[in-house]
């Protein structure tokens, strides 16, 4: 048992995956000597060598495209995109090549690759460093998309994503990297990767979040004085695992989905549509979404106005309860 941050959990998980499988390679900008700009790969090049922890030229399409070639020869590349806003130069390789390779080859050329992306805001960064592009990847068949919300999940989920034979977009809430600590039991049996989890029981309304907003939802649930709120951590965005959400909504009748990404055509829209299909007669109020308006990410001095916070979540809960 050890007490770890999300950064440490991911680091330990990567280390374990590299120990377990010599085909696992890490590649990205500054992942070697520096250990990544967030230190997630700290110490790994020293222990596994420059052939397995590869500092790449500064070209995101190049990183993903060469990782495709490595995967085609049987390696399991784990690549780091330094910041969410830097993934777009690699978008073509991810969407046209990585996502489709298994389908077009009819299973002959699997793409066991993990694309790690620190995502979300709240760190006072300059533009392009605080984005939430998850829906763009979840919209693409052939990719799997997950997001960890806490240190223990970080440790297990990164290993499970690496072991997966499909390409996984792995979204890490960068604001949480060095924030909270949790107890890790390395001997525990983790939940399967592509499952969501109820993290707080409640009876009056259901809150759904993932990545950085799980903490926001939990704080809102704790702060709610007159109502009992259930909180579900989606963990997997593609495929979605909404069984626990349906069960919850059938009991509470009310659902609020919370993410940092734009509400318009975001993950919340898909969750709302599916919940409406599955739980139509259980709903006491429309499914509400809390997320970003249709403005680009603002200058960091006002980012807290843009990001969903406790008050905005509780405001939505009130609207759902009063409906």
């Amino acid at each position: 048992m050890s007490r770890i941050t999300l950064a440490k959990g991911l680091n330990a998980g990567l280390r374990k995956a590299m120990e377990d499988d010599p085909k696992v390679l890490l590649m990205g900008e500054d992942v070697g000597k520096l250990g990544g700009v967030f230190r997630i790969t700290d110490g790994l090049q020293k222990d596994f060598g420059e052939d397995r922890v590869i500092d790449s030229p500064l070209a995101e399409s190049g990183i993903v495209g060469t990782a495709v070639g490595m995967a085609l020869r049987g390696y399991r590349p784990v690549i780091e995109i330094q910041f969410d806003g830097f993934v777009y130069p690699a978008y073509d390789q991810i969407v046209c090549q990585v996502a489709k390779m298994h389908y077009r080859s009819r299973g002959r050329s699997p793409m066991p690759m993990v694309i790690r992306i620190p995502f979300g805001g709240g760190i006072g960064a300059v533009e392009h460093h605080s984005e939430s592009p998850e829906a763009q990847f979840a919209h693409t068949p052939g990719l799997k998309v997950v997001s960890c919300s806490n240190p223990v999940d970080g440790y297990w989920m990164i290993q499970q994503a690496i072991a997966c034979d499909d390409p996984v977009i792995f979204l890490e809430p960068k604001r949480q990297y060095h924030a909270d600590k949790a107890d890790l039991d390395e001997t525990a049996t983790p939940a399967p990767l592509f499952t969501s989890r109820t993290v707080r029981a409640g009876t009056d309304a259901t809150l759904v979040g993932y990545g950085p907003t799980v903490k926001t939802c939990l704080r809102a649930a704790e702060a709610a004085e007159d109502s009992s709120l259930e909180v579900i951590d989606l963990r997997t965005l593609s495929p979605l695992d909404l069984g626990p959400v349906y069960d919850s909504v059938r009991r509470t009748g009310r659902l609020v989905v919370v993410h940092e990404a734009h509400v318009n055509l975001g993950m919340g829209a898909e969750v709302a549509a599916r919940v409406t299909e599955e739980c139509f007669y259980s709903l006491e109020a429309p499914v509400l979404r809390v997320g970003a308006p249709d403005t680009p990410y603002p200058p960091s001095r006002v980012e807290e106005e843009y990001l969903p916070d406790l008050d905005r979540v509780l405001d939505a809960v009130d609207r759902a309860l009063e409906y």
Binding site: G65, Y75, P77, C96
Partner: peptide
Amino acid sequence: LYTIVIGAQTLHATGYAMAMQR
């Protein structure tokens, strides 16, 4: 496999060559 998106395969080739080195 044939690659339709112009030039995308040259990166795959380079990564494959890097794998050969390993």
